[in-house]
Design a binder for these strands. Structure first.
Length: 481
DNA sequence: TTTTGAGTTGTTCGA
DNA sequence: GTCGAACAACTCAAA
């Protein structure tokens, strides 16, 4: 009899989950049972602790997943601790002969998986990992010269031009072969943590009301969101995605963060949108939306090949850049949305209240921190990591580096967003700003700008021009496996 | 090896 | 108000 464990991580879904399906097959083939595991690992070295907003999301996502597993007679075990230890313990407790998971792409996460594979192999257990969360495995996307891509457009072109089709998503299983009282071991004999005891939800104060009002975590809600987007927003996406007052984006990012929906599912659904007789806007919307999913693939490609993406300048010429002291109150103003620059403040308040910020505004707020306040991008990245419900190890780091100009596919150094002009262009009716700032133009409590935009722009241009020592150090990719 | 075209998301200035 | 040029020249990727 061969029991099987599926170890869920950033793939909290039942549909299109190859590891889950493989574990079920393993159990079926040997007359065994299935145990579904989630480990909250805040202690393993190198694994970045989750931010506050993401913890809130995780709690609700796990809660909903547990309910669905229960309905399908599955066994869901929650454990907290070092993943390697917890997994070994559960393998022994369940007499499992196989363990299955879907791949992650961060450095520490891959090391952990390798460690577990080594252990399983030595113990004579089957251990298998699967492609589930990226459509294009980073080690398979190479330039003609065999190096990883560092520019998005050729990367994505190369992905889309592949001869082999992107696989269709897998159906959700209809029975999860869980343990029951007649199983060995029985379900009751296995300890599972109480989700509430993990304290993922904020208390003292509970700041999560705004998040609950805006978001519905979970696999079912993710697909509803995709359907709604395709039905109502896709056609206007290319033209409308830059206007933060309107709901023209898919808002799928937090669902993708924990894999409640997979890129394979998104692409399959897009493929079913009729294109014959479709408007040019629809065709352009499809192209742009797919490219946004492509940016996620690209960011993970970068993270895989440069595991220190969140902490080290991709372009090492920036290593000696002199950032200004963040402790003079201006960083606090940025975080609190009290810089006196309305679009920046509206964005930062949207973030604080709802765990989200519109993409266009993210760029403006990030540019303001980096280029007007000259504060190290890593400080901004860390704040977003803690406050965004979609805080993602690859996307967040890659995007901050991109704005800073030290990342892959970097913008020219002279590209400094003017938040007043951006507001005119993309929030002409002030609807977005007023949503988060009220009537800020007549509000005597609304602060004056903490910095002169024109002056600080000039200083940033000067500082960033000095960075360009013209001889970029050659940094070989950290991994060529 | 050399050449060529292109590079998510911008701003300002002056005609 | 609108539009093109300038803002540095560099790096990447493919031919």
């Amino acid at each position: 009899m061969g029991n099987a464990i599926v170890w869920l991580r950033d793939d909290l879904r039942l549909a299109d989950n190859p590891a889950l399906n493989a574990a079920i097959s393993h159990a079926q083939a040997t007359g065994g049972r299935l145990v579904i595991l989630y480990v909250l690992d805040e202690v393993s070295g190198g694994v970045r602790p989750l931010g506050g907003a993401v913890k809130w999301w995780l709690h609700h996502s796990l809660e909903r997943l547990a309910a669905r597993i229960e309905r399908l007679d599955g066994t869901f075990i929650l454990r907290r601790g070092a993943a390697f230890d917890e997994l070994r313990k559960l393998l022994r407790e369940t007499d499992a002969t196989g363990v299955f998971w879907n791949r992650r792409y961060g450095g520490a996460e891959r090391d952990l998986d390798a460690e577990i594979k080594g252990y399983a192999s030595a113990a004579g257990l089957e251990a298998q990992s699967f492609q589930a969360n990226l459509m294009f495995e980073p080690w398979t996307v190479r330039t003609g010269g065999g190096t990883p891509y560092t520019v998005f457009t050729p990367f994505w072109k190369s992905c889309l031009n592949r001869p082999e089709p992107i696989r269709s998503p897998l159906d959700a299983p209809t029975n999860l072969l869980g343990l029951d009282s007649s199983s060995t071991p029985a379900r009751d004999a296995l300890a599972s943590d109480d989700l509430d005891a993990w304290s993922l939800l904020p208390t003292n104060p509970d700041w999560s009301l705004g998040l609950s009002l805006r978001w519905q975590p979970g696999e079912v809600a993710a697909h509803e969101k995709l359907e709604h987007f395709i039905e109502h927003r896709l056609e206007g996406y290319a033209a409308g995605r830059d206007f933060p007052a309107d709901n023209n984006t898919s808002e799928l990012s937090p669902h993708l963060r924990f894999g409640e929906i997979s890129p394979f599912q998104i692409f399959e659904r897009i493929r079913r949108v009729p294109t014959s007789g479709a408007s040019d806007d629809m065709l352009e919307g499809i192209r742009r939306f797919k490219a946004e999913v492509g940016w996620r693939e690209f960011s993970y490609n970068l993270l895989f090949h440069w595991p220190d993406l969140a902490t080290n300048n991709f372009d090492s010429r920036f290593d000696h850049f002199e950032w200004s002291d963040p402790n003079d109150g201006r960083l606090a103003a940025w975080k609190q949305g009290t810089t006196g620059v309305p679009l920046v403040d509206a964005g930062m308040r949207e973030l604080w209240q709802t765990g989200y910020m519109h993409n266009r505004v993210r760029m403006v707020a990030a540019s303001f921190l980096i280029k007007n306040l000259l504060i190290d991008w890593r400080i901004g990245e860390a704040w977003f990591w803690d406050t965004l419900v979609d805080a993602d190890p690859a996307n967040n780091a890659a995007s901050w580096q991109w704005v800073a100009g030290c990342g892959a596919d970097a913008a020219p150094y002279f590209r400094v967003f003017n938040p007043m002009l951006q507001a005119e262009k993309f929030d002409p009716e002030k609807r977005y700003r007023e949503r988060y700032l009220g009537n800020y133009e007549t509000d005597i409590d609304y602060p004056a700008p903490i910095i002169d935009l024109a002056t600080s722009r000039g200083e940033a241009l000067e500082a960033f021009a000095n960075v360009s020592g013209r001889s970029k150090q050659v940094r070989p990719p950290a991994s060529l496996t």
